[in-house]
C-alpha cells in the first residue's frame, strides 16, 4: 500500500521524468564506455555544475515569477571581471571581501534589471536582451578588453574547486552550491516571500488583489538572481582560474534556462522546484561529460542542449494540457454525481 502510494506520488512529480532520463543516459553511456562509471568521471560531472547550478537557481526564481532573464551570463562575467581587477590591484585581498564584491556587483546589476522591467512594463526577455549586451560591452570597456591571467588569481580561490581540501571528499565549490540550493529551497517553500513569488507567477492578477506588490516581488527576484550570479562568478573564477571577457559566462543564460526547464519548471510561471533544477543541472553535466568521454565532437553540445530544451517545454505543455483535461473530467463527474 505504501509502495503503491509512493509510486503514485512519483508519477505526479515532474522530477521523476528527469531522474528516469538521468538513469537511462548514465547506463547507456556506461555500457558504451565503461570509464564513465568511474569515480573520476563522476567528480568531473560534479565539478561541471556548481556555477551553472547557482545561476540556474536564480533563473528558476525568475521563471517561477513569470520572468525570463537572459542577462545572467553577462552579470556573472561582469562580477568576475570586477573581482579579477580588484585582485590585480590588491593581491592579498581576503577571500571574504572578494565574495562580497562579487555579490555586491551581481545584486546591483540584477536590481537594475528589476527597476527597468518595473519601469517599462515590457517582457523581461526584451529588456534583458538589451542589458545583456550593455553589461557585456561595459565589462569590456572597464577591463580594457584584456584577459585577467591566472597569475592574478590567488591560490586560495583556485583551491576551492580542487579535490581533497575538505574532509567530505568533494570540492568546496560543490558544497557551496549545494548549501545555496538548500537555502533557496527553504526560501521558496517555507517562507512567506517564497509563497508570494509562486503566487505572483501563477496568477499575477489574483496575487495583486491579495495585496502582493508585483513590483516588489520583481525587484526582489531580479536582485536575488543577481546575488546568485555573484556567487556563481566566484565559483567560476575558482574553477577556470583566469577571466577572459570574451568567454566568461557567454551563453550561460541559455544553459541555465535549459537546466531549469528540464527540471520541470513551467515557462508559464508558478511551478518549479529546487530539486528539479538540481536534477536538470545534473543531467546537463552528465550529457556534457558523456559527449567528451564517448568521443563525440564537442560541436554537438549546443544542438543537443537546444533539442532537449524544446522537447522538455513541449512535453511540459502536453502534461499541462493533460492535467487541465483531468480536472475538467473530474468536475464533470462531480457534476453528474450531484445531478443524480
Amino acid at each position: 500500500m505504501i509502495e503503491k502510494g509512493l509510486l503514485k506520488k512519483m508519477k505526479t512529480r515532474r522530477e521523476s521524468g528527469v531522474i528516469l532520463l538521468i538513469i537511462i543516459i548514465y547506463i547507456t553511456v556506461a555500457l558504451i564506455e565503461p570509464r564513465f562509471f568511474s569515480y573520476n568521471a563522476f567528480i568531473n560531472v560534479l565539478l561541471f555544475f556548481p556555477y551553472l547550478l547557482v545561476v540556474a537557481l536564480g533563473e528558476m526564481l525568475e521563471i517561477v515569477s513569470r520572468n525570463v532573464d537572459i542577462s545572467l551570463g553577462s552579470i556573472l562575467g561582469f562580477s568576475a571581471v570586477v573581482v579579477g581587477m580588484t585582485y590585480k590591484a590588491y593581491p592579498n585581498l581576503p577571500i571574504v571581501i572578494a565574495f562580497l564584491i562579487a555579490i555586491g556587483v551581481g545584486t546591483l546589476l540584477g536590481f537594475i534589471n528589476g527597476v527597468l522591467v518595473n519601469l517599462l512594463r515590457l517582457p523581461s526577455v526584451i529588456i534583458t536582451l538589451g542589458t545583456m549586451n550593455l553589461f557585456r560591452g561595459l565589462m569590456f570597456i572597464i577591463v580594457g578588453a584584456k584577459q585577467i591571467d591566472n597569475s592574478c588569481i590567488p591560490r586560495s580561490v583556485v583551491c576551492l574547486s580542487q579535490m581533497g581540501k575538505t574532509s567530505l571528499g568533494v570540492p568546496t565549490t560543490v558544497l557551496i552550491a549545494l548549501i545555496i540550493t538548500a537555502l533557496v529551497g527553504i526560501l521558496i517553500t517555507k517562507t512567506k516571500l517564497g509563497k508570494e513569488i509562486y503566487a505572483a507567477g501563477s496568477n499575477p492578477e489574483a496575487a495583486a488583489l491579495r495585496g502582493i506588490s508585483l513590483n516588489k516581488i520583481r525587484l526582489i527576484v531580479f536582485s536575488l538572481s543577481g546575488f546568485l550570479c555573484g556567487i556563481g562568478a566566484m565559483i567560476y573564477i575558482s574553477r577556470i582560474g583566469y577571466i577572459n571577457p570574451t568567454v566568461a559566462g557567454v551563453g550561460l543564460e541559455f544553459t541555465a534556462v535549459a537546466a531549469v526547464v528540464i527540471g520541470g519548471t513551467s515557462m508559464g510561471g508558478g511551478v518549479g522546484s529546487t530539486l528539479g533544477t538540481l536534477l536538470g543541472c545534473l543531467l546537463l553535466g552528465i550529457i556534457n561529460i558523456a559527449i567528451s568521454i564517448t568521443g563525440i565532437s564537442g560541436f554537438w553540445q549546443e544542438a543537443i542542449y537546444g533539442l532537449i530544451v524544446i522537447i522538455a517545454i513541449v512535453l511540459d505543455r502536453f502534461y499541462q494540457i493533460g492535467l487541465a483535461r483531468e480536472v475538467t473530467k473530474q468536475k464533470q463527474q462531480l457534476q453528474e454525481g450531484l445531478n443524480e
Binding site: V68, I70, V125, G251, F254, V257, A258, F299, W300, Q301, E302, A303, I304, Y305, G306, L307, V309, I310, I313
Partner: peptide
C-alpha cells in the same frame, strides 16, 4: 529561445 540554440548548434 530554444530553437535559437538548436539551429546554431546544428
Amino acid at each position: 529561445l530554444g530553437t535559437m540554440s538548436l539551429y546554431r548548434g546544428i
